[in-house]
């Protein structure tokens, strides 16, 4: 029994995608260890930690991407820009 990864059908874009998420998680962990943060209340209806805001930001981005694909024919790069802005807004003021 050997575990090969061929069945997973990796591609470069998805590899970059998951590596980015993994790196963000590592960075957040280091940040949390160096400078522990506490829950606070922003414009979101619940008190959140940076980890919560990261999750809300990513999930929100997923919905934005789906809406973009369903409703428009423009390139996804514009959407990527919007998603980055959204992430920053949620992380900073959420």
């Amino acid at each position: 029994m050997t575990l090969t990864l061929e069945w997973m059908e990796w591609t470069l874009p998805t590899a970059i995608f998951f590596s980015t998420i993994f790196l963000i998680l590592v960075a957040m962990t280091i940040w949390q260890t160096v400078a522990p943060s506490i829950e606070r209340r922003g414009f979101l209806p619940i008190p959140t930690t940076p980890g919560d805001r990261l999750f809300i930001g990513l999930l929100g981005s997923a919905y934005l991407f789906l809406a973009w694909l369903a409703l428009t024919d423009f390139t996804l790069w514009i959407m990527l820009g919007i998603a980055v802005v959204w992430m920053i807004v949620v992380m900073r003021w959420g």
């Binding site: 061929e6 997973m8 059908e9 874009p13 369903a70």
Partner: peptide, 29 residues
């Protein structure tokens, strides 16, 4: 992860696939 990989390719056999981007998403949506 596997599901994400599948979702952006057209696969017709092990190792036989082409990259199709967001085509399936648009089709399903």
């Amino acid at each position: 992860m596997t599901v994400v990989n599948y979702s952006i390719q057209d696969i017709w056999g092990p190792g036989q696939s082409i990259f199709v981007g967001t085509e399936w998403y648009e089709e399903m949506l």
